[in-house]
Design a protein around this nucleic acid. Structure first.
Length: 137
DNA sequence: GCCAACGTTGGC
DNA sequence: GCCAACGTTGGC
């Protein structure tokens, strides 16, 4: 059973274009318990939306979990995890935060309800709706 | 650049 | 255990 997720990144830290170029990356640096627990719940093959925060906030692409949670080597103290994500495809049209907020079907998204959470589950319906808005039918 | 919302820390 | 102070995130 494939589950769906959304991760955030500021383009100044790690942009969607960086992941497209790299192909794959270790999703390190998460230092929030709830976000960490979400990372740990990810399974290989799960699909993860890449959301760009702060600058032109929008969902930019689709990624996939290629390695499940393991020790985040960038953490010098504490019990933190990361996963490996690979880029799967670029969204033909990014789905902006404004569009998401304006869409009744997406009103319950954690992205809206818990604006500071950086790794969150997305329902199957929400995932499908985002792809629709991105022009992928 | 500003500021609201939120998570964490630490004094009591 | 409460809550004020503080730091960070992220929208605008």
């Amino acid at each position: 059973m494939v589950h769906h997720w959304l991760v955030k990144s500021e383009p100044s830290a790690y942009a969607w274009e960086d992941l497209v170029k790299d192909g794959k990356t270790a999703w390190t640096g998460v230092r929030n318990f709830q976000a960490r627990n979400n990372l740990r719940a990810m399974k290989k093959g799960d699909l993860v939306l890449f959301y760009q925060s702060v600058s032109a906030p929008s969902v930019r692409g689709i990624t996939q979990v290629v390695k499940e949670a393991y020790q985040d080597g960038t953490a010098h103290e504490g019990d933190w995890s990361c996963v490996d994500l690979k880029s799967v495809r670029n969204l033909p049209t990014p789905v902006t935060l404004a569009e998401i907020k304006a869409d009744p079907k997406l009103a319950e998204m954690a992205l809206i309800k818990q604006s500071r959470l950086s790794v969150m589950p997305v329902t199957r319906e929400e995932y499908k709706r985002i792809l629709e808005l991105a022009g992928m039918n």
